[in-house]
Design a protein around this nucleic acid. Sequence first.
DNA 1: TTCTTCATGTAACTAGTTACATGATTAC
DNA 2: GTAATCATGTAACTAGTTACATGAAGAA
Lengths: 207, 207
Amino acid sequence: MSEMDGTMYDVSLPHALLGLLAVEPRSGYELTKAFEADLGRYAWQAGHTSIYPELNRLLADGLLEVTREGARGSRTYAVTPAGREELRSWLLAPPRPAGKVRNEQVLRMFLLSALDPDDALTVLRTIAEKTGAAAAELRRVRAENGPPVNRGAAGFGLLAAEFGLRQYDAVRGWALWAIEQYEAAGVGSSGGGGPAAVLDESRSGSS
Amino acid sequence: MSEMDGTMYDVSLPHALLGLLAVEPRSGYELTKAFEADLGRYAWQAGHTSIYPELNRLLADGLLEVTREGARGSRTYAVTPAGREELRSWLLAPPRPAGKVRNEQVLRMFLLSALDPDDALTVLRTIAEKTGAAAAELRRVRAENGPPVNRGAAGFGLLAAEFGLRQYDAVRGWALWAIEQYEAAGVGSSGGGGPAAVLDESRSGSS
DNA sequence: TTCTTCATGTAACTAGTTACATGATTAC
DNA sequence: GTAATCATGTAACTAGTTACATGAAGAA
């Protein structure tokens, strides 16, 4: 094997698993669902094909233990003291500057300035609309039945919902601001040319 | 080869490159720096070892062309009409629900509920502090010399800076909110026990 | 008994990183 | 001439995805 000497784990899937299991012991199958519902929506995604091997690795490393073997071969995992310590030290350690970011949504936003202004406005309006709807939906769900998901698992759902909400609002606010900038620059009515240059002076007009 | 029939590209590195080059033709080296400075900070990261092969692929696909060959073997790439069209259709296409998210920072926040409240508060305070400082710095830089980076390349820097700012503020706001929740639940003074359960009722106290 | 869901796994592939390697140009 | 930076690349590895595969348990 290669799970050796108590190693670094600067990766994150293992910590996501430790975190979910620290809140509440679960089986691999349940973890898979948790990723689809909770974590996967905002923070980290993983399919069962990543999860199961990782669980076995964490087990071999002594960070997890099997607390129950149920029907059709299911195993319920719980975090060991060593696992708790690993999670704690990872969370308390200073994350590398700004952390790893790879967000397709954000990428799309940034590439807007490469589009011609009319297209950019279309995209911005869609973003504003979608994030507005998503935020409203989240608010509705939360108001109706408290923590939207994971009701049994305490704070997780609350923190996540609030974070998602603020995130949506921030993105929507940005989109609306960007639309204003474009419109103030006279796009959409006066045709191309002069003042649009504020946000997009260097497009070569090609194609 | 395998760059065949005008294919799907639901990936994103190629689009990031097309986007940057649509704003302004650059060499692979310059793109690498742009990823470090601009895009890489918020949206997508890539090292030169991913970029160069990808440029060659896009070139072979006819989405890019070499417009200049400079000193020590440098090639300046520009987007072809086909490339512009590819970028445009990708940006206008409806992104898959919520987009791919894999953000380590966000993961850390979510796992907070797995920590005991005192540790969680420490992390939250650090987050609030760090994002506050980052936002202040961004504001300062922007106020001083307009678009912080990429001054020659038009709107990109402006949109990015504003987005980053709102993002920082949102995260900071969330962290402060979360701190309030924990404190309202009586953590940090009254010791563990009763009301802390609001945010963390199910920690099994094990170890 | 058939279909669905639960529950786990392997194999092949894709994307991206780290480490290694090379050479040209500019600054001192 | 020596060091730093510009500029590109290859090879080996890691992480994660998709497709494939299996079987048990419960519902119809």
